[in-house]
Design a binder for these strands. Structure first.
Lengths: 163, 163
DNA sequence: GGCAAATAGTACATTTATATAATATATACA
DNA sequence: TGTATATATTATATAAATGTACTATTTGCC
């Protein structure tokens, strides 16, 4: 997908054929989809040499972002936006790689507590410099105030979903 | 993922632990991911009664948006952001459902031309009212000028990717 | 204590997406 | 014309994501 111009061209044709089509939200949805794909792919390329993929990276960073350092699988699924069935597979992979560890919860024996191992922390320290470079590069065409404005508008857009 | 507050909390912890982490681009990336997932899921729920899923919907709408009414598989892959290997399967499904048709290209015999069948057009006429309602609802928390502004910022953000 | 009802987690089957490599046709150029 | 090269498409194997159903533990109520 070279640029976004052809997408807009197609939406223009769509609106000619079906005048009720909400063009602006339609553009936004296709932009989000397009951007998401690029972000996902770029992250995967960067992370591959580190031995993990984007979903695994997300799980590690969710754990890294907790104050307690632990989460249950269902909390992790919720945080990362993964379906619970998927969490089993992903956490299995991360366990096999030695990056996270499972242990039974003391206060609720239904739960399992997931936490980063020392190797997990080391892995994060290993890829975070690259990730920081990537994130900074991805946002470089926006000024700080534009980033703030974009964040605000995305949150507002988000508030119109799923309720 | 109930709201976005817990995500911001995690990013705050991350920045405390790793001060170089680019918080604003990080927020944007997670917002995009979150929004994309919701959009994808909502579209799938809406489309299921119509017998298709979101990727198939996208392909149909790409064809609907051309003036000629035809695209080659590779053009379609590019337009929809799907990998070429995936297009074979998806177009096969749509052919089996009778919604699109294949035919050899006259001017370049390497190519195959894909086009909507009358049933394909009928299917589009069937789900477009629902889609329009959904799109309008999804964008309802943004004023027109906010939608324009968001579109502009997303395009600018997009311009920082993949080059 | 014992019995629903709720919740967390997992296992399995299926669907969806990707990567790789193979095949086929057209194009460029000697 | 013949050969190399580029491009388009498909086949196959693999990986990733999802849906459904099942097990186990806790909770609330009798």
């Amino acid at each position: 997908m070279a640029d976004f111009a052809s997408t807009e061209q197609r939406l223009a044709v769509t609106c000619r054929r079906y005048p009720d089509f909400p063009r602006r939200p339609g553009v936004l949805v296709r932009l989000i989809k397009h951007i998401h794909k690029l972000l996902h792919d770029e992250a995967n390329v960067l992370l591959k040499p580190h031995g993990i993929n984007h979903p695994e990276y997300n799980l590690l960073m969710m754990l890294y972002g907790t104050t307690s350092g632990t989460m249950s699988p269902s909390e992790l699924a919720d945080a990362a936006g993964e379906k619970s069935a998927n969490i089993t597979r992903l956490t299995n992979e991360l366990c096999e790689k030695g990056l996270i560890a499972r242990s039974g919860s003391a206060d609720d024996r239904r739960k399992v507590e997931l936490s980063l191992t020392p190797q997990g922390h080391a892995a994060i320290d290993g890829f975070l410099p690259d990730i920081c470079t990537l994130l900074a590069r991805q946002g470089r065409h926006l000024t700080t105030s534009e980033q703030i404005q974009l964040e605000k508008l995305l949150k507002k857009f988000l508030s119109g979903l799923a309720d």
